[in-house]
Structures are given as C-alpha cells and as structure tokens.
Amino acid sequence: MTDGASTIQSVDRALTVLALLAKHGELGVTEIAALLAVHKSTAFRLVSTLERHELAEQHADRGKYRLGVGVLQLAGAITARLDIVQRSRAVTRRLADELGETVNITVLSGHDALYLDQASGTAALQGHNWVGRRIPLHATSNGKVHLAHVSADRFAELTAAPLHRFTDRTLTDARRLRAEVEAVRRDGYAVAADELEIGLTAVAAPIAGPDGEVAGSVSASGPTFRIPAERVPEVAAKVVDAARQISRRLGWHGLPKPS
C-alpha cells in the first residue's frame, strides 16, 4: 500500500471511530478494534490521535473512550454560521426590498470570504447567486470588512501572496490595501466599486457576534450605474443599520470590538 493510500485509510478509520463513538456512547480499545476489524494496537493509535486533538477522551474510571470537547467546538462553528443566517434573514430581506438590490451575508473562511445567504431585491441582477461561493478578500467590500477586523499578523498572512488583479480598479498593493481597510475600520463600512467585476459596486458592514468580535458581514450590491459614488453614503447608512440589527439579534448591542 502506498503512503497516500495508507493515509487515506487512516483518515477513513479515524472518522469511522468518531461515528462509532457517536453511536455507542463509549467504547474500549478492544471493542473499537473488533468493530473496525483491525489489530488492537491500530485501534489504540487511532483513538490516541483523536484524543490529542480533543475529538475523543478517555473516561477516567472505566478506561473507555467517548467523544471529546473538540467535536463540540467543531459543531459550534457550524452552529454559529447557521445562527447568523437564521437571525439575519428577516433583516436582509427587508434591506433587499428597501434598496431593490442584492444583499449577502458572508463569513471569513480561510483566505476567502464565504457567502452564506442571499436576498434579492426587485431590481437585483438575475442569475447571480453567490451562496456557497468563495470570493477574494482584497477585491470585495465583504472581504475588506473582514480584513479590517483581523490582527496585524493575520492581515499580513492573508495578503502575503500576490494579490490578483481582476480589473484595473483592483487594489493589488498590500500597503494601499492596509490604508483602505484602516479607513473601513474607522468609517464602519467598506466599498468596492468595479474592483471584482466592472459594473458591480458593493457596500458592506461588519456583524458582531455575542462577544463583540466580528462574526460576519452584510453587503448590498448592484450595478455601478444604480449605486454611483453619490449614492454610496445612503446605501452605506442602510447597510450599517442592518449590520447593527443583525448584531443585536445575535446578542451584541455595541460596536464591533477593534482587532
């Protein structure tokens, strides 16, 4: 068996162990080995690895293994994302109707912004469904919001690779981008006009979670001719208000904490 195949088999077995612990509640190494049809030493290595990552834990009295707190942490991350979608939906629908444009909810995911939900207004572009899409941080209003609320070290990490130029308006210089996101932090909203696509303008604001940390962003986007520079302050005020409403629904009643 090649190293790659062996690694895949180990991952598959570890995931199976998690499923078995979820099903049975508690299992000993001998029981796990029997259910997996592997040697006891292999089963021990698997649960030991899971234990190091807090995905499994050993009961002190009985010596059996059960699911660990790491599983709750992973589940909590998914629950938090679902919570943002559920608690923001009424606000985003209302904002989309008011502006007539597309309204999106995003979260920071790795080196991208991930779109979780979308509401379309009466004048919104058809066939532009962003849900599930990952988009670059430096060329979008949502992305700039996320960049504005990470630490200096995280910002450097997220902008270390060459920044791709999508249009002649895209910011590809990290120093200029840093100056812009500092303005985003100061003003409370971000704008991207013709930076990801020519003819598309978006305005975004940060959503604070119950601890005051930025948990996501909300944006309104539409054709640049419908959101020209002179209309941006009006749209921004409505987007910022929507972000605050969503933050209150998530349990935060102040402004997002500075990074």
Rank of each mutant, 00 (worst) to 15 (best):
M1R: 10
M1Y: 09
A5F: 10
S6M: 13
I8G: 08
R13S: 11
A14L: 13
L15E: 14
L15I: 12
T16H: 12
L18P: 11
A19E: 15
L20A: 02
L21F: 07
G25C: 05
L27R: 05
G28L: 07
I32V: 11
I32N: 02
A33E: 10
A37T: 15
A43R: 01
A43K: 04
L46F: 06
L50G: 03
L50V: 04
L50P: 10
R52K: 13
H53Y: 14
E54Q: 15
A56W: 04
A56N: 00
A60D: 13
A60R: 14
R62M: 09
G63K: 03
K64P: 06
K64A: 15
L67K: 02
L67R: 04
G76A: 08
G76L: 07
I78N: 10
A80L: 14
V85D: 06
R89A: 07
V91C: 08
V91I: 09
V91P: 02
A96F: 01
D97T: 15
D97N: 14
L99S: 08
I105P: 01
T106L: 01
L114A: 02
Y115E: 03
L116D: 00
D117Q: 06
A123I: 14
A124N: 10
Q126W: 12
Q126N: 14
G127F: 13
G127K: 12
N129K: 12
N129Q: 15
W130T: 12
W130Y: 15
V131W: 09
V131D: 06
G132F: 02
I135R: 13
P136C: 11
L137G: 04
L137Q: 03
H138C: 02
H138G: 00
G143T: 02
K144L: 03
V145Y: 04
H149M: 07
V150F: 03
S151M: 04
R154F: 07
F155K: 03
A156I: 07
A156M: 10
E157C: 10
T159M: 03
A161H: 12
H164N: 11
T172I: 05
A174Y: 06
E180S: 12
V181Y: 01
A183K: 15
R185F: 09
R185G: 09
R186G: 06
D187F: 03
V191W: 09
D194S: 04
G199F: 02
L200D: 02
A202V: 05
A202W: 05
V203A: 00
A205D: 04
P206Q: 07
A208E: 09
P210L: 12
V214L: 03
G216C: 01
G216L: 00
G216H: 01
V218A: 02
V218E: 05
S221Y: 09
R226F: 05
I227Q: 05
A229S: 13
R231P: 08
V232M: 05
E234G: 08
A237M: 10
V239N: 00
A243K: 00
Q245W: 10
I246S: 01
I246V: 09
S247N: 05
R248K: 11
L250V: 08
G251Y: 08
W252G: 00
G254I: 05
K257H: 12
P258Q: 07
P258D: 03
